[in-house]
Design a protein around this nucleic acid. Structure first.
Lengths: 136, 136
DNA sequence: CCGTATCCATTATGATACTG
DNA sequence: CAGTATCATAATGGATACGG
């Protein structure tokens, strides 16, 4: 990736991260995988999300055309959210990250513990320095 | 993904998002794809990143065991960063997101424009409400 | 060249309360 | 049940300056 390390690529990836790289968006998209879901059901499914943040997240996804909102004029109100065609194209990348999370999180937790423990142990490399002024 | 919409899955995905879902981490990882890169080269490659944020990002990746840091005791100093084996496992998901970004960003930009333009047009659904009290 | 610390502005998030 | 508004706070990120 990023074979051409050009500014434009960075810009685009940055924009995507601001879209889906926040605390809740990917989780919400993941839970919309199998069809329409009601607001309340979503909130129960996405552990820990607040009422407000679910609303905010869904509004952003709606604005970006990743999610469709359908309100039924019943009493009490019923509102369902589902992925658009565009939203579904995000599922493979989301799944990839999700599976990575599931597979490697324990390993990372170990590393974090080790890091604080190590600390002073990690000194400079003993590799032969190429020169005093390596480049230019 | 998230077939089992259990709290544990949410926890894990949340943790991963706090690890790699920030503004710069995925871009930095992407630019480390092909081997060791010097600090300065990284900063030039990742358009717009500040000196401070590159340092912060790299420290976090180092702590999590995704990146190795090698300092050569030359003057001026030379420091190289490279992905660990664990870090390389993150490349496929990162690539997937990067490619999605490249493919769909224009479409999203259009949708955003349309949303503000539409606004009042989008009313309630005209679907037949199932009942006044849809569930329970 | 690389790293760190400080200061500061902006943003993201959560709690709460109120409306239809 | 779903949405919105307000407020307080934490987290994020950039500029800058200094040290090794």
């Amino acid at each position: 990736m990023f074979e051409t390390a050009d500014p434009e690529t960075c810009q685009r990836v940055l924009k995507v991260l601001t879209l889906v790289g926040d605390k809740w968006t990917l989780l919400v998209i993941g839970h919309l995988e199998h069809g329409p879901v009601r607001f309340g059901a979503l909130q129960r499914a996405v552990t820990g999300i607040s009422h407000r943040m679910l609303t905010v997240t869904l509004r952003a996804l709606e604005r970006d055309g990743l999610v469709d909102r359908t309100a039924y004029p019943s009493v009490p109100p019923r509102v369902e959210y589902q992925l658009t065609d565009l939203g579904r194209t995000l599922l493979p990348p989301v799944r990839a990250l999700g599976e990575w999370a599931w597979t490697h999180l324990d390993e990372i937790a170990e590393n974090q513990g080790r890091f604080t423990a190590a600390g002073a142990t990690a000194g400079l490399s003993t590799d032969t320095p190429r020169s005093v002024h390596p480049e230019r």
